[in-house]
């Protein structure tokens, strides 16, 4: 089976399962991103058709929300908190360190495809700042050393 055939069947199945919910578009987009890591451009016509929306409308929604992405992410996406509480505990320094260590800026992916870096504005972990999230895992009181350790572990599995 080619990759685009798989993509299409995944999109079709998710869309069919969810399209009758009131306000189905966000649940559908979440479903697709959970399954594929991003929302491929070729899924837009299928979603639009099943919800009787225009492609532009669907695309407008995808691009409005920071969380939805239209390109494949790296194996691990590091969501680094930029908000005030984390700043008060050295978040800006950590941000510089992380960018330097991974060799990428926000919204970029490392050349080996292992890590993407995204900013996030509070993870609700402000009592343990600075904080980051990788997948569903959340990390508190992150330091340069603990960051190194974490990505070393993840980099080896990836």
């Amino acid at each position: 089976m080619t990759e685009s055939v798989t993509t299409q069947s995944v999109v079709q199945e998710i869309t069919n399962n969810l399209k009758n919910k009131p306000g189905a578009l966000l649940p559908i987009l979440h479903g697709i991103q959970d399954a594929l890591g991003y929302i491929p451009a070729e899924s837009v016509p299928e979603i639009a058709k099943s919800l009787s929306l225009s492609r532009a409308e669907v695309h407008g929604v995808i691009s409005f929300y920071h969380y939805f992405r239209e390109t494949p992410p790296g194996k691990n996406t590091v969501h680094l908190c930029r908000a005030e509480s984390c700043q008060s505990m050295g978040g800006k320094k950590l941000e510089d360190y992380v960018k330097n260590k991974l060799g990428i800026d926000f919204h970029e992916t490392t050349a080996d495809g292992k890590f993407s870096l995204e900013p996030v504005y509070c993870l609700g972990n402000c009592a343990c700042s600075p904080a980051m999230q990788i997948g569903k895992e959340i990390y508190g009181r992150v330091s340069a050393e603990s960051f190194d350790e974490t990505i070393k572990e993840l980099g080896e599995i990836a």
Binding site: G23, L26, P27, L29, Y65, H66, Y67, V120, Y121
Partner: peptide, 8 residues
Amino acid sequence: VRLGAGAY
């Protein structure tokens, strides 16, 4: 439960 998508 419905999920948001990172828009403040």
